[in-house]
Structures are given as C-alpha cells and as structure tokens.
Amino acid sequence: MWVISSIGFPVEAERRVMAERTVLDMWRQLLVEAFSERYKVSRSKIPNGLPYTSAAYFKGMQSVIDEQIAPLVSIRNSLAHGQWVVAFNEQRSEVNGDRTKKLNGITLWHLRLQRNMLNHLERLIFDLMVTQYAFERDFDKHWSNLQAAQIRLRSDKSKEWESLLRKRHLRGKVHKSKNYRKLIEAGLI
C-alpha cells in the first residue's frame, strides 16, 4: 500500500493492483506495473520484453515474492482466520500439516527478519517506480541486504537469539537491583 499510494505511482496502475483478488496477486501485479512503467514496456510483455539486465532484476524480485512472500501470506491468512494452533486447507475441510508446522515454527526472530526482508523489497520497488536513478544505483545494496535476511532466516538461529534476550533481561534485572540498592544506601530513596 505504501508503494502504490506514493506520488510517482500512476492511478491506473494502482487500480489494477487493487483489483487483484489476493494479496499475493497484488504483489505480483505491483512488480509487473513497476517494471512496465519504468522501462516503458507493455504489461503483457513483462519480463520477456525487458532488456536482459532488467529482466534479471524482475526475475530475482519475482523469486522473492514466490519463495518468501507467498508462504508468509499463507501463514498470515491462517492467523487471520483464527487458525492459531492448527492450520487448515483452503476449504477448511482438513488439517494442513505443512502450514501447521510453519505456523508453529514462527518466532519473533523470524518475523523481524521477514519484516527486514520486506522492507528491502519495498525499497527496491519504490526506487524502481518513483526514483530516476536510485533503482540501478542502489539495487546491489538492497539486494544483498535482502539476501542476507533470507540467509539468516534459513540459518534459523532463533533459539540463540531468544537465549541472548533472556540473558540481557536477567542482566538488566541485576543492574536495576544494584542501582536501586545504591540509591537507598546513598539516602536518595
């Protein structure tokens, strides 16, 4: 919504994105609209009508949508339909074991990294659509940051991160207690 409501995004393109049936289709249409507008190629000719490098940009960004955003949207839909512990198939007639496993494996660590990854993708699409030079200039920087988030997600160090947070919390409690005692001893409390 942030990208399509920006000043540089054409109203007709916004309408086409918003007309899509699913959030995932909206992401895909957004990408097509952005490349079509940037490179002045009709939407029906994306990606084949793009220059080689631009087509590679498109395919890379499309792979992020298909491999990262699609599962995220699926999990989000389960949560939105009250499936907090067990996820069902689209018809809600039986349990979806894969989605349930993914749902139960999500932690705050995963959500933070996925948000980071989405921020980089949003920035790429915004630069593609709205800026004159930033897309090509900053693509490698945003792309490497996006890939770094994907690598961290695959490495799944959420347990170590949670342990670190617990240690920090306990250390903070000890410091707070020591500081409180010092204030009492100094007669300030």
Rank of each mutant, 00 (worst) to 15 (best):
S74D: 10
I125M: 09
K159I: 14
I125N: 10
A56V: 13
P71Y: 04
Q147T: 07
F139N: 05
R137N: 04
L103Y: 07
L108W: 11
D140H: 08
E94D: 07
A56N: 12
Y133I: 15
A70Y: 08
Q114N: 09
L111Y: 06
K101W: 08
Y52G: 13
I46A: 04
V130P: 01
D66E: 15
Q132P: 02
V95L: 03
F88D: 06
Y133L: 15
S42H: 09
N116L: 04
T131K: 09
M61F: 00
K157A: 12
E122D: 14
W161T: 02
M129I: 12
Y133E: 15
V86P: 04
G60A: 04
E122R: 12
R92T: 05
E90S: 10
Q147D: 06
F139M: 04
R123K: 14
N116W: 04
N104S: 13
Q132C: 07
V130I: 10
T53P: 02
R137P: 01
V85F: 14
N89Q: 00
L108C: 09
N145G: 06
M61H: 00
G97R: 11
R154I: 11
L111G: 11
S42W: 08
V95A: 03
E160S: 12
P47G: 05
G60V: 00
Q132S: 14
V73D: 03
S63R: 03
L124W: 04
Y57V: 03
R115Y: 12
G97Q: 13
G60L: 06
N77W: 07
R154E: 11
N48Q: 14
I106C: 06
R76Q: 11
L146T: 02
L128E: 01
L146C: 02
A148N: 10
V85G: 07
L118V: 05
D138W: 04
N96T: 00
L111E: 10
Q91L: 10
F135R: 07
H142Q: 09
R154P: 00
L108A: 13
E67C: 09
T107R: 10
K59A: 02
A149Q: 03
I151P: 01
I151S: 06
S93L: 06
N119R: 11
P51L: 02
D98T: 15
E136A: 06
G82E: 08
T100V: 03
W109C: 05
N145T: 01
S93C: 05
S144Y: 00
R115M: 12
N77M: 06
I125P: 08
K101M: 11
K101E: 13
Q91F: 06
G97I: 07
N48T: 08
L113T: 01
Q68K: 14
S155A: 15
D66I: 05
S54T: 10
V64H: 13
M129S: 15
D140R: 11
R43W: 11
E136I: 06
V73W: 02
F139G: 01
R43Q: 15
H110G: 07
P47R: 03
I46G: 02
S74R: 09
N96I: 00
R137W: 01
T53Y: 08
R92K: 08
N48A: 13
S63P: 01
S63N: 03
S158N: 08
N119E: 10
D140P: 01
V86A: 10
Q62F: 11
S144F: 00
H120I: 01
W84Y: 14
V64T: 11
I46W: 01
N119F: 03
I151G: 06
R154S: 12
W109P: 04
G60H: 06
K141W: 10
T107H: 05
H142M: 04
